[in-house]
Amino acid sequence: MDISHDVFTMANLLGVSSSTVKKYYLLFEDNNYRFKRNVKGKVTFTNDESKLLQRLTVLKNEPGMNLKTAVEQLVQEAGVNQLQQQENVIKHESVMSERDQLFLQLHRETIELLAAIKEGVRSNEERIEELEENIDQRFKRVFKNLKTR
């Protein structure tokens, strides 16, 4: 289950001020990364986005890096990850679709078999009724013959 964090919670997790978190997420959004917002329009951060911001706080301090280039690199990485996730979802849906089709085919075949079984039972019940009627008629004839003797 993915937990959402607000700006204040993210600031505590990162050990920075709320305004710094706002600065970070605005830089991400300037680079076309979109964070979810709650019903009040406030930014919320998933666990993955929390990790993303934690990576930013480390990456921006590496030699040859600054805040802007670190954000650009992380956005690019996040975009690649997002594309991979979308591809995985599509593959999963394709497998599920095949599985669903097989299930539906098996379901249809089961219904057909059940209908055939019901027809067989109905036919057998009719045959049993005929045989019972024949037996009753034979018993009547036998009893009639016994009475007349």
Rank of each mutant, 00 (worst) to 15 (best):
D136V: 10
L53C: 02
L104E: 13
N81C: 09
L114Q: 15
D48M: 08
L102N: 15
N47D: 08
E29T: 06
A116N: 15
E133M: 08
L67C: 05
K91S: 07
H107T: 13
Y25H: 10
T57M: 09
H5A: 03
Q76C: 03
E29S: 05
L102D: 15
Y24Q: 01
S123K: 12
V58Q: 14
V95F: 12
E77Y: 10
L102A: 12
L13F: 06
S123Q: 12
N12C: 01
V75M: 05
V7N: 02
Y25R: 04
K22A: 01
E119D: 14
Q101F: 14
R149V: 14
V121G: 01
V21H: 00
V58R: 10
R141Q: 14
M10E: 02
N134A: 11
K40Q: 11
R127P: 00
M1K: 10
N38C: 03
K51D: 08
E77K: 08
D2R: 05
D30A: 09
Q105V: 07
K40V: 04
Q86K: 07
H92G: 10
D30L: 03
G120Q: 11
A115D: 15
I90R: 10
S50Y: 07
E62P: 07
R99C: 12
M65S: 08
H92W: 11
S18T: 13
R138H: 12
K60D: 04
I3C: 03
Q86G: 00
E109M: 10
K40G: 06
R149C: 09
A11E: 02
M65Q: 12
A70Y: 04
F28Q: 02
T20E: 07
N88T: 09
T57W: 02
Q73F: 09
T9A: 09
R108Y: 11
E87V: 13
L106T: 13
K42C: 04
N134C: 11
E130L: 12
T148G: 08
S17Q: 09
L113R: 13
K144P: 05
D2K: 10
L83M: 11
M65P: 07
T46K: 05
T44E: 06
M1H: 12
A11H: 01
Q85F: 04
K91H: 03
L53E: 07
S18K: 08
E126Y: 03
L14H: 06
L104K: 14
Q84M: 07
N134T: 13
F139I: 15
D100E: 13
G41C: 01
I90G: 00
E125K: 14
K140W: 10
L53T: 00
F28E: 04
R37V: 05
G41H: 02
S18F: 00
V80M: 06
R34G: 05
E72Q: 08
E129D: 07
F103T: 12
V58F: 07
K23D: 01
I128C: 03
E93G: 00
Q84R: 11
